[in-house]
């Protein structure tokens, strides 16, 4: 088998990825039909169909255990599908895994940095794994350390870095081979808000440079920030698909009114009293969610019915609401 094409792709610098995009009738970078992954009796991914086009930022949104990571590992060619068709970059991962992986960048859910090496050495050796020459790897390493703002930590060991720094280093590592597609599994889970925003900023820049992003997340704000298109995943299947805006328009209302009636209140009883006031009411253990196009108006109507909630909050609908509607559960349990 020949991997000559992959060699060509690797030598393309980040900035000119678009140039590659035009050189053939482009097949989808990810093409899956009936894709299934089973571990013994357990079905992690249950016959999904998905296509990701070049240049897209595509997201898998869902709670822990929805099958996102299993899907990502199959797309990353480190986990053979149990059933179904899968083509990555137009090739078959079963037979051409190494050639495909040569053109991917992977940011796994848990950092797998080489703790026996320094920050800089982590990138150097990783580039070598891709078959890059030492000189090319050195240049690329310096460029990437700059990009993820770690140049001043180049000689440090990996262990003492903060969570956000480790994550940025992992992202730099995933870019060492100028990948055509970047796979990010829960890129910001466990990071503080500042570190998350700094990371989103880096990812956004990559997107602008034409890198295809495929990511999983259980944060709706992350999905809204980064994804052009996403699927909501639950129990190994897709519950819905579309842009964040489309999903909210289809499955939720413009605004949400949140009512709290205190710790000991029976929210079910209050929900009955509010019957017919709005399109839909969700009863959560600690609060009621009223789906409405006019939050303030609905709040006034609640008071008109003689109810006195401890607190009221009007907010815009988010993907969390979409998920709740689709599955009857919240994303972050």
């Amino acid at each position: 088998m020949s991997t000559a094409e992959s060699g060509r792709q690797l030598s393309v610098p980040l900035a000119s990825v678009e140039a590659v995009a035009t050189d053939s009738a482009d097949p989808p970078l990810v093409h899956a039909r009936g894709l299934t992954k089973r571990f013994g009796e357990f079905t992690a991914v249950d016959g999904i169909d998905v296509d990701v086009a070049r240049g897209e930022a595509f997201g898998f949104l869902g709670p822990n255990g929805a099958g996102k990571s299993s899907t990502m590992r199959m797309i990353g060619c480190v986990s053979p599908p149990t059933e179904g068709t899968l083509r990555i970059l137009g090739r078959d991962p079963r037979t051409e895994g190494p050639a495909i992986r040569a053109r991917l960048g992977v940011v796994p859910q848990q950092d797998t940095l080489d703790t026996e090496l320094s920050v800089r050495e982590n990138l150097l050796i990783y580039g070598r794994y891709f078959g890059m020459s030492r000189a090319a790897v050195r240049d690329k390493t310096d460029e990437l350390l700059e990009f993820v703002q770690l140049s001043d930590r180049a000689k440090d060991k990996v262990e003492p870095l903060s969570g956000g720094m480790k994550r940025r280093l992992t992202i730099a590592r995933s870019l060492i081979n100028d990948p055509e597609m970047l796979l990010l599994d829960e890129p910001t889970t466990g990071l503080d808000p500042q570190a998350r925003h700094s990371l989103w900023d880096r990812l956004f820049r990559l997107k602008q440079r034409g890198v295809t992003l495929v990511l999983t997340t259980h944060y709706m704000d992350e999905a809204e920030q980064l994804c052009d298109r996403l699927v909501v995943m639950d129990k190994g299947r897709f519950a819905a698909e579309g842009s964040p805006r489309e999903l909210i328009a289809t499955y939720s209302t413009r605004e949400v009114l949140e009512l709290r009636f205190g710790a000991d209140a029976d929210n079910k009883v209050y929900a009955d009293k509010l019957e017919g006031l709005v399109d839909r009411i969700e009863v959560l253990p600690d609060r009621l969610l009223l789906y409405t196009d006019d939050g303030d108006g609905s709040a006034a109507a609640v008071y008109d019915r003689g109810l006195r909630p401890v607190s009221t909050l009007v907010r815009r609908s988010t993907l969390e609401d979409v998920f709740l509607r689709l599955t009857g559960r919240t994303l972050v349990d």
């Binding site: 480190v78 040569a102 797998t112 080489d114």
Partner: peptide
């Protein structure tokens, strides 16, 4: 523990 090999296998290394 270090998951060193997991990282290596997402490259062309087998």
């Amino acid at each position: 523990y270090a998951k060193t090999y997991d990282a290596i296998l997402s490259t062309p290394m087998s």
